[in-house]
Structure formats: C-alpha cells, structure tokens
Amino acid sequence: MSFLSVKNLTLRLRDNRAPLLRDVSLEVSAGEVHGLVGESGAGKSMIGKAVLGILPRAVEIAGGEIWLDGVDLLTLPPAARRKRVGGLAALIPQDPLTALNPSRRIGPQITDRLVDILGWKRTEAEARALDLLGEVQINDPARVMRQYPHELSGGMRQRILIASAFAAEPKLIVADEPTTALDVTVQKQILRLIAGMQARHGTALLFVTHDLGVVSKVCQSLSVLYAGRILEQSTVRDFFAAPTHPYSAALLGATPKYTDPEGSLTPVPEAIIARLRAEIAAYDEAHHG
C-alpha cells in the first residue's frame, strides 16, 4: 500500500469549469522521492496543493480520491482533514522570501504547529526547533530563533523553511519548486540539503519541478505532466535511459548541455505539441459536462 495514493483526481475552475487536472493518478510509497515534471501551467503544483488542502478558492475538486496513510482525505470533514494533513504532511514552499510571516519571529514559526496542533510542550518544541536548525546548518540557532525574517538571507530562510517542514517528523513532504527562487550558487546546497534530510528522516517527497536535471539527482520515480494530464510515469532510471512518450523524449532533448549550450537548446517540436493538444481536446470531448 502506497503512503500517498492519488486516484483519478480531476480539478477545474469554479466559474467556467475549465479543467486544470484531468484524471490524474499517482502513487508514492513511504520514503520514496517522486518528481512531478512539466511546463508552467501543466498542473504539477496543483497536485501538491490538492494533497495539502491549499487549493485556491477558484479551484474545485471535480472528482477523484486522495489517500494519505490509508484514509481518503476528501471524505473527511475540513477540520479533521486539516489536522490529519498537519500531522502527516508538510510543505517546502517555492519562495522563501514570502513564505515566512514578516511580523513574527522565526522560533514560533517553526514551533507553532508542534505546540498548537500536535500538543507538544513549548520547551520540547523549542528544543526540537534548535536541533533541526542545527541540522540544516544554521549557525547560532538560538539567536536565529529570536530574529525576524527580514534579518536573514534568502538561503537562510529556505533552510529555516526546510527545518520547519521536518519539525513534526512528517511522512510526506511536498517540495514545490524549492530552489527556483534561489540564487544559482545556493540552489545546489539547498538541493543537497533536502536530499540529505529526506534520506536521514526517511520521508516521502513529492518534488515539483520543471528541471529534469534536479529530478535525475534527487528522485526515484517521476510523472510527466502536460496540460493537466499525466503522459508518462516511470522510475527515474528507466526514464532517463529511454522515455516512452515522444513529449518526454523532446523534453529531455530540450535540456541544455554544458558542452554545447547553443546547439542543445532545442524546443519541443510543433508536431508533438499539436498531437498533445488534439489528445487533450478529445479527452475533454469524451468527458464533457
């Protein structure tokens, strides 16, 4: 039994019913790192948001199931669902500059979930936060706990958010493009940090990214999305050896190579895009209404 199991999830916009995810299914076992790859707007972030229950108000779930540790979250009442997700899962957000509350000190932003939701003692929660800040290689954690976000760099803040995500020892973490907003020099360190933390804690990771290079480094399996449809699901090893879908092959081909940056930058061929669009249109036709 997979720890996270998304079955036939369909999302659409509330007002004009335009589909955002079309019949998406995926499985993530305990401790597995699963990559969600696709262009901007492919719907990869929406999967993570649906699992965590933070879909924008304009988006509604039109069908499907989201099983987390043996319970279908979509059948739970909102309060019970929030509590379950808060205890079992966590988010590493995309932009560390906007994901910390500017008017609250760092310490309480890490410990609040432990104390308020999971009922820890404050002293225990603070000790845990200090440990984790040390683990993400922050110097003088006790001082940082008393600081405000604006006093820290982007890289520091992302480390804090990673520590915060691991605070309740969750079984699943959704990492939503966690390095996109960072400086290139910091990206690698953060990536290595997330991979290391994941391995040590044995946490399953849903890794949302548009960077296949990142997927090859940290993921074991992946799903390729296009326009809210999953085109291909496989292990990372098989995928990079021989992608089965022509779009995946084209994506791989579009990855720039250091040896030949100009020549290797090839766009996905028009013919493949046209074929995908036709498939999506046919799908929408078949599922109309």
Partner: peptide, 14 residues
C-alpha cells in the same frame, strides 16, 4: 493570498 498564510494552513490551522 500570501505564501505564509498558505503555509500556515498546511500546518493544520483553520
């Protein structure tokens, strides 16, 4: 709509 509010929701807050 800001990210830290969304992050707080994922922690289990209503």
């Amino acid at each position: 709509h800001l990210d830290y509010v969304t992050l707080s929701r994922t922690k289990g807050y209503g």
